[in-house]
Design a protein around this nucleic acid. Structure first.
Lengths: 216, 216
DNA sequence: TAAAATTTTTAGATTAGTCTAAAATTATTA
DNA sequence: TAATAATTTTAGACTAATCTAAAAATTTTA
């Protein structure tokens, strides 16, 4: 078994790997709110366990074993988020911290039964795909609202920013997962966008448009 | 906040306190599968935090603050056990270890919502009372089968031994929570007991009779 | 391409929890 | 009640994870 801390490092490396091939010590330190020196120590430990490929100064990648563990943590995190929202009526901006704790409960039996109990959901409350018990998942084909052209339309299916302030903002604007939207206007000057959603016009900034993801 | 380890010590002291007024270092060591020296270290720490009353060589008791924390852990443990059995179809002998992990999830909001989700159950799958969100609970008035006389009857409402081997044995004998039983025969020689349960006779040893609890 | 800036690693401490072995205290019993 | 036994505490060491400060390596830039 691995410690929660090791699991958190593997998960962080997994998420960072989706952006850049080789993940740097500083990137990991930033994402875990820790110091580079601490990261180096842990990288040595994870490399000894053959969970990451690590060469001094060269950054890291996950080995297949490390990725398997990372995916099991992601699976647990997303299934617990789904449970909190769908069964316990938490709001989508309230679940992250609790799921960060729950994801380290080790029982595989527990998580597989929880998955069945909820009907094997494919996406969590933020639209992120939930790996199945073998670590497999199919991601939506998502693009940011900012990449759409005038009169393009789509369905809100995910977010790039998971911060509660962003999620609360979307909630207030009624731009939540599943809503159908259409681009009514694009402002050339500041790249803000006016959307049509359920017969109402919603004006969002370039930043928001960049972090709001659509499927067609 | 306290660490999981501190919580485990407080919980152990709480359970041991139900048996004997002052709890000894060795009792705690045995119940946590650790060594007396480790316990002494932790007792100092808990005393510094004013969670226990501790005088060298004299054993410990919980302070009101320590008891409050212990009860919150017991509440979480029992509610999670109820969830595992009632919602996820675990058997009553399979839930202990998972609940030992889940009881350390810190969110009070989570556990109070879980409580509501399940309809605020009063007893866990082993018949132990579940403290409410203020730490209050009413215990069943329970007595062991071994204390009954011929032709006495009652309802199986709890167990003294929580080991999975004992629980599995009861399951096999169909002596589970809620079953009505009547003492059909008491063997003077070995104190074994023959029970009538649902028109069937069940023969149990003195040991089993001692660990099986009845309400009238 | 050499100097400067940045990133990463090493060295050495610190904290929480644990351990063994030895010393101190308390309890038992003869 | 003095010797013995049992329990408890202290002393000193170890592991996991973290930190600061300094050294080493890499990258940037002029």
């Amino acid at each position: 078994m691995n410690t929660s801390t090791e699991e958190n490092y593997l998960k962080a490396i997994y998420h960072l790997s989706l952006q850049s091939e080789n993940v740097s010590t500083n990137q990991i330190a930033a994402s875990l709110n820790t110091k580079a020196a601490s990261v180096t120590d842990m990288l040595k430990k994870l490399a000894d366990k053959e969970l990451i490929n690590y060469a001094k100064y060269q950054g890291v990648t996950l080995t297949p074993g490390g990725e398997k563990i990372a995916l099991s943590i992601v699976r647990k995190h997303r299934l617990w988020e789904y449970f909190l929202v769908e069964k316990l009526n938490f709001k989508w901006d309230e679940v992250h911290d609790v799921a960060e704790e729950l994801e380290h409960i080790s029982s595989k039996e527990l998580i597989d039964r929880l998955d069945d109990f909820m009907g094997n959901p494919k996406y969590d409350p933020h639209g992120d795909p939930i790996p199945d018990c073998n670590g497999l998942f199919k991601a939506h084909e998502l693009k940011p609202v900012s990449s759409l052209f005038l009169n393009d339309s789509g369905i809100i299916s995910g977010v790039r920013d998971h911060s509660s302030s962003f999620l609360q903002y979307l909630e207030k604007m009624q731009l939540t997962i599943g809503k159908k939207i259409k681009v009514a206007e694009i402002n050339d000057y500041d790249h803000s966008v006016i959307l049509n959603s359920e017969d109402k016009k919603v004006h969002i900034s370039r930043d928001v448009a960049n972090n709001l993801l659509i499927s067609l």
